[in-house]
């Protein structure tokens, strides 16, 4: 049967979405701040906290900008 390899759990998807945001804003000097703001503006609180929990639990695969952005998000 055609197994669908792309059904990942939600957090994995959130990680890749957040990395995408960070990499697309990378040219700005305040890329981390912009990434934080973008997540605040467009993500539900639940999506943000799922990702924060993942990061705080030492989750892998987060870009440097994203890691910095998540620190700011945690404080906000």
């Amino acid at each position: 049967m055609a197994i669908n390899a792309t059904i990942n759990n939600e957090t994995t998807h959130l990680v890749s979405m957040a990395n995408d945001i960070a990499v697309n804003l990378r040219l700005h000097a305040d890329a981390d701040e912009r990434t934080t703001q973008h997540m605040k503006k467009f993500w539900t609180p639940r999506m943000r906290s799922l990702l924060l929990d993942y990061a705080q639990a030492g989750g892998s695969g987060l870009s440097t900008t994203l890691t910095a952005a998540l620190k700011k998000l945690a404080k906000a």
């Binding site: 959130l14 503006k41 993500w43 539900t44 609180p45 639940r46």
Partner: peptide, 18 residues
């Protein structure tokens, strides 16, 4: 005052069970 789910986020959340 907080943004809601977009369509793809709804699908993810549905599969997740929320």
């Amino acid at each position: 005052s907080e943004p809601g789910l977009r369509i793809p986020n709804m699908f993810d959340a549905a599969i997740y069970g929320d």
